[in-house]
Design a protein around this nucleic acid. Structure first.
Length: 886
RNA sequence: GCCGGGGUGGCGGAAUGGUAGACGCGGCGGUCUCAAACACCGUUGGCAGCGAUGUCGUGCGGGUUCGAGUCCCGCCCCCGGCACCA
């Protein structure tokens, strides 16, 4: 065996042998516990993997490898999220067909993953663009449709003018398309939606039962945005000053004018209803159309102008931070149902049509936005809540969730909580309104006007009625065409392909296919289920296979999918659960987000005439340029690795220069798993050195190795050295096991380094007792096995060096024994008044009295006790003695 | 503004309320070498001291405790997310 870490000399051979042996095939043995370890479904980009991507693949691999050695049935699959915009855009850019391009990129990803020894079962792999897979995506679409959860309807949707398709709300960040960065436009076109809002409450509640990072859960809670309140009706009258003169009535029918006008408002603060001094409608609110008919021409002109301006404004302008409030008086008055007070009704764009009822009761005394508006239009501000027991009110506006009501008639002195309960009841009793829960979550817009996606299995008859494609006609194949660029007219390129569009309906008449495709997030919402049963030709998956593997025990990926993929996948799982197809309510029991890997990236200050883009802090330059420029002109920053930034380190380079195991261990060791990393290649020196020392140690020790050690070790009389060796070994096993389980991979690697240092310090004795030889045998074998999840190539090299056949992955994880791991000597810290003054070695388990006696006997302690009186002595068994004196 | 996560040596970081800085990188000194690289050995928080040792030290200010990086209160700063959601 090698006695130095020369990766090129042995790592490729081990990878070949693993492949030869089909080592990573999923094995199911009855009676064993299962472990499903999964990485996020990657889109295989043409740039290939960077060492940044390896930062989730390596830890997942390590934990899966350990679980397999511990006797679990392990499912550790990988596939590719091939459908969707990124793939299609890249294909257009390179003037290629997405299908063959993706094939090539996926193969490259796979070769890179293999290069660093990730133990994926590739036999189960698929791409979301494989007809065998998307057949079942369509099948699940139909299931949603049949359950009333997929529907096509007219809506104001987000149109991305660059990618020429609509986008889901989740894909729009602050008015811009998340991917293209374009300002989204509003379009009123019919689109397919999944009714995820039907599941809002369950998606919220079940977050409590899963082990996810608190931040991600919180983001989902915010996105779902539940709020409790009261929705009630307000009647509208027209202010006499603004009323439309009788003589103008002309063609208007009397009944129309006599029909009572009203609108509904939603509030979470019904307790502040006595503080309502005006109401605000969203400009798009339908009741405004009715008001328009009844007000005079001056009002009408103002309202029309404001509505027009609001319609033309983009979302990003309308929602710009710090924008001044604006609105116009409608001339209508709304009647406060509790006080019968008439307050003016405005339209203003700070009220959104899409949330609640699109109308609010404004309480400027206790709401910042309403206050700002009231200031501008000189409206009354009325405090109705006071802090309990305070003499003076804080400056208005203030928002208090605790306090008592004032200026509120019969409710004066009532607490906020009581008032909310009583008023909610009052509205319900009087049938003016009811308590209601509102969600910010909107339905999931899933149709896309693009070619490279899963076709929607729907056909329209000549009246335009939708029907699903029969199961035996699935999949609806995506036609293979030369030209697939987006049309840009709001239809998919498929709409222009007659042979695709023209079909017959179920009753044999002429029909028309749906030509939009499903957004990529639909395809990735169930792939983890297909991995359980990837070869099934009759079903998306069998209930038994899903019951065997689900839920995913450990799901690893970046935090950027916090509310998209992770919310959609939870939704689909719940629908499939309701349909009785899946045994779990939540797909991902434990979620972990890896930290980002940042590359050292050179920038320079902009020169005269150069402008920085939004959010840019300098002009990106190449490494070559950075070397030429004077050092003071170059600004180095740590920036997420990406091809466009030119700061990528590939695993291929790292393996070439340092070795696959050195890379793997460095990925684990460099920082806590969830923290971002400033990447430097030099860091791999440390892990490569450690691997060299490990190989050297095993190579030296194998002469003493006795393969039958485990049969004899407990009967051989232990001596001092054998006990010390075994203590190191058993402490290592326990530490490694718990560290890997709790995703503390950096301390797992550190523990192996510490153990190796201890072994090296002990050294192999020239004259070795039987007990020592057996202890070393245990140490050599256990160390090798513990190393295996992190550095499998090296571990297998050592394993063979020790005379074993086969692979460490197939060996049994060593069992740690707590009594062998326990120290027999302890170091007692001795403090005087909390300050460390001495340390004393004592036998483990020494009684408190002995510890106190030894502590007080210490010269160093005595020197700090002269002239003072001992007040108290605190003894922590096995740890410390603190002498309190004054 | 709101929500979440963080601030520990030159750097990455470790530490169930109990010896702060494990482990590694880098630095320094040495061995090997004609020399260098590699490797190996030693050393490495600041200040004072030849030294034993003393003293300061986990973002800042308070508090609880025999004892606080860790718990509580009030701030400051950094990162991520949301942002007129009534």
């Amino acid at each position: 065996m090698l006695d130095r870490y020369l990766p090129a000399d042995f790592e490729p051979q081990w990878r070949a042998r693993w492949k030869e042996a089909d080592l990573f095939l999923t094995q199911i043995e009855p009676g064993r516990p299962k472990f499903y370890g999964l990485d996020f479904f990657p889109y295989p980009s043409g740039a290939g993997l960077s060492v940044g991507h390896c930062r989730n693949y390596v830890p997942t691999d390590a934990i899966c490898r350990m679980k397999r050695m511990q006797g679990f049935n392990v499912l550790h699959p990988m596939g590719f999220d091939a459908f969707g915009l990124p793939a299609e855009n890249e294909a257009i850019k390179r003037q290629r067909h997405p299908s063959e391009m993706i094939e090539e990129y996926a193969a490259n990803y796979r070769s890179q993953m293999d290069l660093i020894g990730i133990s994926y079962d590739w036999s189960r792999s698929f791409k979301s663009s494989d007809p065998d897979y998307y057949k079942w995506t369509q099948w699940i679409f139909k299931l949603l449709y049949e359950r009333g959860l997929a529907e096509r309807r007219m809506a104001a949707v987000n149109w991305d003018p660059v990618d020429m398709t609509v986008l889901a709300d989740e894909e729009v960040i602050a008015g811009r398309a998340e991917r293209s960065g374009a300002l989204v436009e509003k379009k009123y076109i019919p689109q397919w939606f999944f009714r995820i809002t039907d599941y809002a409450q369950r998606l919220l509640d079940d977050l409590d039962d899963i082990d996810w990072p608190e931040g991600i859960k919180q983001m989902q809670r915010n996105w779902i945005g539940r709020s409790e309140g009261v929705e009630f009706e307000m009647e509208v009258v027209i202010d006499p000053e603004s009323i439309r003169p009788k003589e103008d009535d002309g063609d208007l029918e009397i009944e129309v004018l006599e029909k009572p006008l009203k609108f509904r408002v939603f509030t979470t603060r019904i307790d502040t209803i006595f503080g309502v001094t005006f109401c605000v409608l969203a400009p798009e609110h339908p009741v405004v159309d009715q008001i328009l008919k009844r007000v005079n021409s001056q009002r009408k002109t103002e309202i029309d102008a404001y509505r027009q301006a609001a319609r033309e404004m983009s979302d990003i302008d309308r929602q710009a931070v710090g924008r001044e409030k604006s609105g116009v008086r409608t001339g209508a008055l709304a009647i406060n149902p509790l006080t019968n007070e008439a307050v003016p009704v405005f339209i203003a764009d700070y009220v959104l049509m899409g949330y609640g009822t699109g109308a609010i009761m404004a309480v400027p005394g206790h709401d910042d936005r309403d206050f700002e508006f009231a200031e501008k239009y000189d409206l009354d501000v009325r405090p109705v809540i006071a802090p309990e027991g305070a003499d003076e009110l804080p400056d208005l506006p203030f928002s208090l969730k605790e306090g008592v009501l004032i200026n509120s008639g019969d409710f004066d002195g009532c607490s906020v909580a009581d008032a909310q309960a009583e008023l909610g009841q009052w509205f319900e009793t009087n049938e003016i309104g009811e308590r209601k829960v509102n969600f910010k979550l909107r339905d999931w817009l899933i149709s896309r006007q693009r070619y490279w996606g899963c076709p929607i299995p729907i056909v329209y008859d000549k009246e335009g009625h939708a029907e699903t494609v029969p199961d035996d006609a699935l999949p609806v194949l995506l036609p293979d065409v030369e030209s697939y660029e987006p049309s840009g007219d709001g239809t998919s390129p498929l709409a222009h392909m007659e042979e695709f569009v023209n079909v017959t309906t179920r009753d044999g008449n002429l029909g028309r296919r749906e030509t939009d495709t499903l957004g990529g997030f639909a395809c990735s919402s169930w792939y983890f289920l297909r991995f359980c049963d990837p070869f099934n030709e009759d079903k998306p998956f069998s209930p038994e296979s899903v019951a065997e593997w689900m839920p995913v025990d450990c799901y690893v990926g970046g935090a950027e999918h916090a509310v998209m993929h992770l919310l959609y996948a939870r939704f689909w799982t719940k629908v499939l659960y309701d349909a009785g197809l899946v045994s779990v309510k939540e797909p991902f029991q434990r979620l972990k987000n890896q930290g980002q890997v940042l590359g050292h990236t050179p920038y320079r200050a902009p020169r005269e005439g150069e402008k920085l883009g939004v959010g840019e802090e300098g002009i990106l330059i190449s490494y070559q340029e950075a070397e030429v420029l004077p050092a003071e002109d170059v600004i180095w920053r740590w920036v997420r690795m990406s091809k466009s930034k030119g700061n990528v380190v590939t695993p291929n380079e790292a393996v070439e220069q340092y070795g696959a195991d050195a890379l793997r261990l460095h990925e684990l060791f460099v920082a806590p798993f969830d923290q971002s990393v400033n990447w430097t290649n030099e860091g791999m020196n440390g892990t490569a050195r450690f691997l060299s020392r490990s190989l050297k140690w095993v190579s030296d020790g194998r002469n003493h190795f006795e393969s039958e050690w485990s049969n004899r070790i407990d009967s051989a009389p232990a001596d001092e050295r054998s006990k010390r060796i075994r203590r190191v070994t058993h402490q290592l096993i326990a530490k490694a096991e718990s560290d890997i389980d709790r995703f503390s991979f950096n301390t797992y690697v550190a523990a192996m380094m510490t153990a190796l240092n201890s072994y090296a310090e002990l050294g192999f004795a020239e004259q070795m007792s039987d007990a020592e030889r057996l202890a070393w045998s245990e140490a050599l074998e256990s160390f090798t096995l513990v190393l295996s999840p992190g550095a499998p190539h090296t571990a297998d090299e050592m394993w063979e060096g020790l005379g074993h056949f086969g692979f460490t992955l197939e060996a049994t994880w060593p069992q740690s024994n707590a009594s062998l791991a326990a120290d027999d000597q302890i170091t007692v810290a001795v403090q005087v008044n909390g300050k460390l003054r001495d340390t004393i070695a004592m036998p483990a388990g020494a009684p408190k009295e002995d510890m106190e006696e030894a502590a007080l006997a210490s010269e160093k302690v005595q020197s700090h006790l002269s002239g003072v009186t001992i007040r108290k002595v605190i003894v922590v068994p096995g740890k410390l003695v603190n002498v309190v004196a004054s």
